[in-house]
Computed example of a mutant assay.
Amino acid sequence: MDTLFDLPEPETPEQAVIAHYRLSDDQYGSSAEREAVFDAERAMAAAVEEAGVGEVDGNEFGGGEAVLYAYGADAEALFKVMEPTLRGLPFRPAYVRLRQGSHETESRVDL
Rank of each mutant, 00 (worst) to 15 (best):
V17K: 03
I18D: 00
H20L: 10
Y21T: 00
Y21F: 15
R22S: 15
S24W: 06
S24R: 05
D26W: 03
Q27K: 10
Q27V: 07
Y28C: 08
S30Y: 04
S30R: 09
R34F: 04
R34D: 09
R34T: 05
A36W: 01
V37Q: 01
F38S: 12
A45N: 05
A47H: 06
A47W: 05
V48D: 00
V48A: 02
E50G: 12
E50M: 08
A51N: 06
V53F: 09
G54E: 07
V56C: 07
D57H: 06
G58P: 09
N59I: 13
N59A: 10
E60M: 08
F61L: 10
G62I: 07
G64N: 02
A66Q: 00
A66F: 00
V67E: 10
V67D: 05
Y69W: 10
Y69C: 01
Y71I: 08
G72A: 07
A73C: 03
A73V: 11
E76C: 03
V81A: 07
V81I: 13
M82G: 01
E83D: 11
P84A: 08
T85W: 02
L86A: 04
R87Q: 14
G88K: 05
L89G: 00
L89I: 01
R97E: 15
L98P: 00
R99K: 12
Q100S: 14
Q100W: 00
S102N: 06
T105D: 15
T105S: 12
E106V: 15
